[in-house]
C-alpha cells in the first residue's frame, strides 16, 4: 500500500536550472489519517515541501503522490494554514470561512442556493474551536489567537482529506499556542484527516505528531524519522513526562547536527 502523501527522491530548484537547490533527494511518506510533523533548521525548504505536496509547485526531479496519484495540478483536497492568518479584512469571520466553498467543487455551484446550510456548517466549525457566536465579527476585531483559529477553520471548512500547516502557531504567545495545540489535536481526533505540520518547535511536534521527520539545512532532505509512541489521547501534562523530554532531546540532537 502506498502512503497517502508520498514524496520520493524529490529535488526542487527555484529560479530554473542552475538556481538555488531548495530540497534534494527528499523522501517523505505519510499514511492516511496520520499526524506528521516536519522539523528542521530555518530555511531548510519546509515551505517548499508544503508547495510540492499541495501541487502548487512541481518537482524538478523525483515524484510526488497524494491519495494514490501523481500530483500534476493543485490537489484540491488540501486545506492550508500559515503563520499569518491571512484573513480578508473586508469579510466577516463567517464570510472568511465560506471563501474556500466559493472556490472548490461541488460547493462552488451550490453555495448560492444552499447558503443557510453552509452557514450552519461554518458556525458549527467555529463553535468546535471555541469561537461560537463570533462569526459576525471582522477579523481585525479578533485577537491573534482567535484569528489563527479562524484560519484553521478556513482550512477545514471544505472537509479536506489533507491539512497542511506551515508554522501556524509561530506568532502566538506560549499559552495561546498550547491552547491551539489542543484545538488541532481534537480536530485530528474527531476527523479522519491526514495532517502535515511544518514547525521548528520540537515540543509542538512531539505533542501533536505520530511521526516526525527531521530535515537538514538547505538543500533539505530527511536526516531522521521518529515515531512518537506516546499513547493518545494526549494531555498537556504529557509534555512534562521524562518520555516526552527524551524524544525532544533526541530530536534536538539531530537538529544540532543538521544545522550548517
Amino acid at each position: 500500500m502506498t502512503a497517502f502523501v508520498a514524496l520520493d527522491d524529490v529535488s526542487h530548484v527555484y529560479g530554473g536550472a542552475g538556481g538555488t537547490l531548495a530540497v534534494d533527494g527528499l523522501s517523505i511518506h505519510v499514511n492516511r489519517g496520520e499526524f506528521a510533523a516536519v522539523v528542521g533548521p530555518s530555511g531548510c525548504g519546509k515551505s517548499t515541501l508544503m508547495k510540492l505536496a499541495t501541487g502548487l509547485q512541481f518537482p524538478f526531479k523525483g515524484t510526488v503522490q497524494v491519495a494514490g496519484s501523481v500530483v500534476r495540478q493543485p490537489v484540491k483536497i488540501a486545506g492550508m494554514a500559515f503563520q499569518a492568518p491571512t484573513l480578508l479584512p473586508w469579510r466577516t469571520t463567517l464570510e472568511n470561512l465560506l471563501l474556500p466553498l466559493e472556490i472548490v467543487e461541488p460547493h462552488r455551484g451550490r453555495i448560492r442556493r444552499h447558503r443557510a446550510e453552509y452557514v450552519a456548517r461554518a458556525e458549527a466549525l467555529l463553535a468546535s474551536v471555541g469561537l461560537a457566536g463570533q462569526g459576525g465579527k471582522f477579523p481585525w476585531q479578533l485577537s491573534g489567537g482567535m484569528q489563527q483559529r479562524t484560519s484553521l477553520c478556513r482550512a477545514l471548512i471544505h472537509e479536506p482529506d489533507l491539512l497542511m500547516l506551515d508554522e501556524p502557531f509561530g506568532a502566538l504567545d506560549a499559552f495561546t499556542r498550547e491552547e491551539l495545540w489542543c484545538v488541532i489535536r481534537d480536530l485530528h481526533a474527531a476527523r479522519n484527516i491526514t495532517i502535515v505540520l511544518v514547525t521548528h518547535d520540537l515540543r509542538e511536534a512531539v505533542f501533536l505528531a505520530d511521526r516526525i521527520f527531521v530535515m537538514s539545512a538547505r538543500p533539505g532532505r530527511i536526516v531522521a524519522e521518529r515515531e512518537v509512541d506516546i499513547p493518545r489521547p494526549r494531555d498537556l501534562e504529557v509534555t512534562f513526562t521524562p518520555q516526552f523530554s527524551a524524544i525532544v532531546h533526541e530530536l534536538r540532537a539531530h537538529i544540532v547536527k543538521a544545522r550548517p
Partner: peptide, 17 residues
C-alpha cells in the same frame, strides 16, 4: 499575500477567481 494565493490555488482557484 502570497500565502493567501497559495491557499486558494491549492483549492483549484483560477486566476479570475
Amino acid at each position: 499575500e502570497p500565502e493567501l494565493e497559495d491557499v486558494l490555488k491549492a483549492l483549484g482557484a483560477s486566476k479570475l477567481d
